[in-house]
């Protein structure tokens, strides 16, 4: 069995070094601006930081993938083009892109640059993927987290590029690249600004009885009794009401993490070339733990041994985990 590439998050230079040391085959990261979909305060790289980080990673044989996976608004494309030019100069190993204009710019300006299609492009069928391969020479697609393993196996046989799937971390419920819920509430866009449920507009309000209400912008995302652990107010993980349902309920999904550790052999068998760990916003300790555990698991599976991954559960959000869409169609 060929060993898949382990693609790991690097939200900061320190996290990048941690992931590299823990055995990442590749790390992905972005600049400190709207050119990537994790444009959060305190995250991401300055140009000198990325330059040093690329040197560090390359010295240890790890690839650096630059996330360029937001959609430039009209009239503001210069920021993206500058970032791409810089990435080329620094020698990153691939660009992760979503926007057709961005893909076209790289494909025509730097025809030797390697392009990965971001999950933000929402290419969920062979024809879409073939379109991006044919038009822009895309070499790898990151699949939306909406397909079952058998569906991935069938798809892999029909596309002329490598396949990367998420295996662990945050489990967004909307199709990536097709969600403007955050913009509807906050005025900041996931696609245009790289922002999702921004912390600057989060409020926690505790009443006299000890109950906690979490709010994003003007809207209540959830309410917690004193005996409940409050979660971060991500719109698609909140509780809401509707006449068809008794009481407040998780209308989209519970606060839960994706963990495909037990499906790893199936995913590798399905023809997946790269396994992606989500979490550029996570701590170094988290990155170290998750990356080293998956490094060992992938190596075990590749050499025919049984992988041990039970302790990863402790790292998942709210200690709850799911195999999401990957296990069964009943998730839909």
């Amino acid at each position: 069995m060929t060993s898949p590439e382990l693609v790991c998050p690097a939200g900061t230079p320190a996290a990048l070094r941690t992931a590299v040391d823990a055995g990442a085959d590749a790390v992905y990261c972005g600049f400190q601006n709207a050119t990537n979909a994790r444009n959060f305060p305190g995250l991401n790289f300055t140009v000198p930081e990325l330059e040093r980080s690329v040197a560090y990673a390359h010295a240890k044989g790890t690839k650096v993938l630059l996330a360029m996976n937001t959609y430039p608004p009209a009239g503001k494309q210069a920021l993206w083009k500058d970032a791409i030019d810089t990435g080329i100069r620094l020698g990153v190993d691939a660009f992760i892109v979503a926007d057709i204009g961005v893909a076209h710019y790289i494909a025509t300006t730097y025809p030797d640059a390697r392009l990965h299609l971001s999950v933000q492009a929402a290419a969920s069928n062979p024809e879409s993927i073939r379109y991006y391969c044919q038009e822009f020479g895309v070499k790898r697609v990151v699949l939306p987290r909406i397909l079952t393993v058998p569906e991935i196996r069938n798809l892999a046989a029909e596309v002329p590029c490598e396949i990367e799937t998420f295996i662990f971390g945050n489990h967004g419920l909307m199709v990536e690249g097709r969600c403007s819920l955050t913009n509807y509430i906050t005025g900041l866009s996931t696609n245009l600004d790289g922002v999702c449920s921004p912390a600057a507009q989060v409020e926690y309000k505790r009443d006299n009885a000890g109950n906690l209400t979490t709010q994003l912008g003007e809207f209540t995302i959830d309410c917690f009794g004193c005996d409940e652990t409050a979660g971060y107010p991500t719109i698609c993980k909140g509780r809401y009401t509707t006449p068809a349902h008794d009481g407040g309920y998780y209308a989209f999904e519970e606060p839960i993490s994706l963990n495909l550790s037990s499906l790893l052999p199936d995913l590798i068998g399905a023809g997946v070339h790269a396994l992606k760990i989500e979490g550029r916003q996570r701590s170094r300790a988290y990155v170290k733990k998750v990356v080293s555990s998956f490094r060992k698991a992938v190596d075990d599976i590749s050499s025919g041994r049984t992988a041990q991954l039970a302790d990863l559960l402790a790292l998942t959000e709210g200690q709850k985990e799911t195999q999401g869409a990957f296990k069964s169609k009943t998730w839909r």
Binding site: I146, M174, V175, R178, Y249, A251, F252
Partner: peptide
Amino acid sequence: SLALSARCYHARAHGRIKD
């Protein structure tokens, strides 16, 4: 239109799945 998903939230509200 604000978002698309693979999951049917209408079915979910009624305790069902998409299929």
